[in-house]
Amino acid sequence: MLQILTGFGFLSGISYPFRLLRLFKSNPALLSYIIVPVLVNIVVGIFLYIGLFLFGWEITDLLTNSIINRIDSLLVDFPDWLNGVDYFVILLEWVIRIVLGLFLLIITGFLLVQFGVILAAPWYGNLSEKIEKIRTDKIEIIEVGIIRDIWRAILFELKKIVLILGFGILFFFLSFVPVFGAIVSTVGGLTITGTIICLDFFDSALERRRINFRKKVALVWKTFPASAGFATICLLMIGIPFINLITIPFCVGSGTLFVCDRILFKHL
């Protein structure tokens, strides 16, 4: 019954940032491990929001105007009694701007995660180790040497890019198929985004065990729909401008809690 009430784990996945807050409350020393990551996120965020976001907003503005101008050109030949459609066009313009704006915020937050997690990896690693030690009373680390460690980190990022591009191109072409293609591409795009989010925030705990990329992806899917709930709340947290400078470390810590509770003893 509890499984049904929690959406078969979906709501449980959403709860992990709040579980981390309880852990911080009982172990306040853990807060010291998020100071440097927050500072790193602030520096990276300044460059992203000033550069990428402002540039992206200009592109969004041009795209919106292009769409509205095409609609206006189609309405020229409409009869006079349909002049009320102009109000619909104005409403549509605002809807398009809001949707594209939200999409731009999500993309900017997503990129902030990618750069922030890489640059602050040592501190996130320490935070993850401490959380795992508290949660499981032990910690497993497979040493491979610094050179191989760096190489694995590079390969991890490259494989994520291949995953995004591979499915992104597929979903792009599917989006041209009326109705069915649009639905599949939208759901598929959200699925890949959620998978990448989970990979990023689970990786501190999983990489200590030197798990290969395919198995990491498989573990994300094995914990569905809890992993979907976790990705949803994290996507919301990283999509809020400026707030995400602070929430990303919480997502990393929450990911370690998720791995400890739902992966270590069940799938590894």
Rank of each mutant, 00 (worst) to 15 (best):
F78V: 00
A29G: 04
F110Q: 01
G125I: 05
F88T: 15
F78R: 06
D80C: 05
G51E: 03
G84F: 06
V76H: 09
T108K: 09
Y124L: 03
F47C: 08
I42F: 13
L62C: 04
I67M: 10
L111M: 11
T108S: 13
F115H: 08
L102S: 13
L52A: 00
Y33Q: 04
L111A: 03
V99T: 12
L30F: 08
V89C: 07
D72F: 03
S73D: 15
P79I: 12
A121R: 07
F110W: 04
F115E: 09
I98F: 12
I106G: 08
N41E: 05
P28V: 06
I90E: 10
S66W: 11
F110T: 01
N65H: 07
T64G: 02
S66Q: 11
I59Q: 10
L62I: 12
S26A: 08
I107R: 04
N27I: 15
I96P: 00
S32V: 07
Y33C: 02
V85D: 05
G56W: 07
G45Y: 06
S73N: 14
V76F: 14
I50Y: 11
G125C: 09
L54W: 06
Y33G: 01
Y33W: 06
P37G: 14
F55R: 11
S32Y: 09
I98K: 11
P79V: 07
N83L: 09
R70L: 11
P28A: 02
G116R: 04
P79T: 12
D77F: 14
V117G: 02
L62Y: 10
I90G: 01
N126R: 13
N27G: 08
V44P: 06
I67N: 07
S66D: 10
D80M: 10
F78E: 04
Q114L: 11
I46S: 11
L127G: 01
L92I: 04
V117D: 00
I67S: 07
F53V: 13
L82N: 01
I71T: 06
F47D: 00
T108I: 15
F88E: 14
I50Q: 01
F115D: 04
E58K: 12
N27A: 10
L104Q: 07
S73E: 15
V117S: 03
I67F: 13
I71A: 12
G116E: 02
P37A: 15
F115W: 12
L100G: 12
L100N: 14
Y33I: 02
F88Q: 14
E93T: 09
L62T: 11
E58H: 14
G101C: 04
L105M: 14
L74N: 03
N83S: 10
S66F: 14
I71R: 02
I106Y: 15
A120I: 01
A121Q: 05
N27C: 09
A121E: 06
F47N: 06
W57G: 07
V85M: 13
L74Y: 06
L74C: 05
R70Q: 12
L100V: 13
G84N: 01
I34R: 10
I98V: 13
S26P: 05
V36I: 15
I42S: 08
V85H: 12
F53Y: 15
P28Q: 00
V43A: 09
I71Y: 09
I106S: 15
L48F: 00
L75G: 01
L31F: 09
F115Q: 07
F55V: 08
V44S: 01
G116H: 05
G45R: 05
L63C: 05
L30D: 10
V117I: 08
D77K: 13
L75C: 02
